[in-house]
């Protein structure tokens, strides 16, 4: 008997069958990363259905396919995520989703936070310190773009949960607003959307409802020390302790 709720099992079914919209899928993947029991459940479901994939008729790859794929991942390693497919750097398209977020999105965001809390609390399975707050950063359509965890000791992590194309002459910059007096303060500059640990100096401990956001800035970060570029996502801190 496992401790996964029926709701989470339903979501896992949708996920494994490819029935989850992309925005929800990325958030659910974040949840899978956090919850070993859910990860096992999803892995079991996948392996159960794998014979269906093996029932497809194999097909020869085009000449040179392996070489060109290797070149592609080498370029990816060198340049950050130069994902193939149509380049689409405009931030308003960053989520690649134009429909309004579904009502269940909110529930899923909440489930992610609960899942994160459960994951951290599950018998010390995870040795990392607990984040003091977590903020799910949403774009202007309400679609999750990134999750920031602030540990309160001048370190935070950011993980992106949507496909965000960062043009070569731009960087992503993570910000928070500790108090109106301090104003928007940079937590770090990123050139790619890999999960990143951020370290910064002398900020007050994070508070509930503190604003976090990611903006697209000129390469190397905002020239003014304040956010200047379009907002990729923003969200408010939810306390975890």
């Amino acid at each position: 008997m496992t401790g996964l709720s029926d709701d989470i099992r339903d979501l896992a079914s949708d996920y494994v069958l490819g029935l989850m919209p992309e925005g929800e899928m990325r958030l659910f993947e974040e949840l899978i990363q956090r919850d070993p029991e859910l990860a096992r459940h999803v892995g079991d479901l996948r392996d159960s259905l794998l014979p269906l994939d093996l029932s497809a008729t194999p097909r020869d790859l085009s000449e040179g396919f392996a070489e060109s794929t290797r070149a592609l991942v080498q370029a990816d390693a060198a340049d950050g995520p130069a994902a193939p497919g149509p380049a689409n750097p405009a931030p308003q398209h960053a989520a690649n989703i134009t429909r309004p977020p579904s009502r269940r999105m909110t529930g899923l965001a909440a489930a992610a936070l609960v899942g994160i809390a459960i994951g951290f609390g599950a018998g010390g399975l995870r040795p990392q310190p607990e984040p003091q707050v977590i903020a799910v950063l949403l774009d202007d359509q309400g679609v999750p773009q990134a999750v920031v965890e602030d540990y309160g000791n001048d370190t935070a992590t950011v993980r992106f949960v949507a496909q965000i194309d960062v043009p070569a002459d731009r960087s992503l910059q993570v910000w928070t607003l500790p108090t109106p007096e301090i104003g928007a303060t940079s937590l770090g500059v990123l050139d790619r959307t890999a999960p990143t640990r951020l370290t910064f100096d002398d900020l007050p401990g994070p508070m509930a409802q503190q604003l976090y956001e990611v903006t697209l800035e000129p390469a190397g970060g905002s020239p003014t020390g304040r956010p200047t570029g379009p907002i990729i996502g923003k969200g408010y801190a939810a306390p975890q302790v």
Binding site: R40, V42, G43, D47, L61, T69, P84
Partner: peptide, 26 residues
Amino acid sequence: EALQDAMVQVWRKAGTQRADSGSVRG
């Protein structure tokens, strides 16, 4: 195109696949 795209994702996410959560193949 899908396969190449998938290999880029495999490359990026390789470190996140957990040995206790289903097969690499799946």
